[in-house]
């Protein structure tokens, strides 16, 4: 009987393992944001091109990486991997790190192009990373979304300063986000 109980506890532990904490994301290539953003001064939207035009921000096509990383003998393993993807004409199978549940609607364009919110406000200091983030640097729970929507102030276009957002309140209606 005792053994049965022990086995039971272990079985439950194993079965629920994945739900205890979020598993770390392992990307196919150890891509460093730091080199590209801080040293090369590439703007975020040069790679995440759809952020200003679409709901999703998107990942750069392999062709864009190869444009810089094809020249000469590849020095590192990582660059060789990129070139291999390039030669096969494949897209690099990046995994998603930030993800909202499917019952939430979110558009990058609304926030990046219309409201001019900085990427870092929601994603943290991506430009300091030497390797892909295993977990979101910042979580975006519902309170964070609504917290910003409630206190948002539109910059005053004529003079300096801000105007209280009476003219156009940012929606906090459940139906604006949930679907």
């Amino acid at each position: 009987m005792k053994w049965l109980a022990v086995i039971g506890v272990i079985a439950v532990a194993l079965l629920t393992w994945g739900f205890w904490w979020e598993p770390a994301v392992k990307q196919p290539i150890e891509y460093p944001h730091k080199t590209h953003v801080q040293q090369l001064k590439l703007p975020c939207t040069s790679c995440h091109q759809r952020a200003e035009k679409d709901a999703v921000a998107g990942r750069p096509p392999t062709a864009l990486c190869v444009a810089c990383h094809s020249g000469g003998e590849a020095k590192s393993e990582e660059i060789k991997k990129i070139q291999a993807f390039g030669e096969k004409g494949q897209e690099i199978p990046w995994k998603r790190v930030w993800r909202l549940p499917p019952h939430v609607f979110f558009s990058h364009r609304t926030h990046v192009a219309v409201a001019k919110v900085k990427c870092q406000t929601c994603h943290g200091a991506m430009e300091t990373l030497d390797r892909p983030p295993a977990r979101p640097l910042k979580t975006l729970a519902m309170n964070d979304c609504i917290g910003c929507h409630e206190q948002w102030e539109w910059p005053n276009e004529k003079g300096g300063g801000v105007v209280k957002a009476v003219a156009r309140r940012v929606s906090t209606d459940c139906n604006a986000c949930h679907r």
Binding site: P101, C174, N175, H178
Partner: peptide, 9 residues
């Protein structure tokens, strides 16, 4: 005026 139904809630 839409009668919303928030499934998560």
């Amino acid at each position: 005026g839409i009668v919303a139904q928030i499934y998560a809630r």
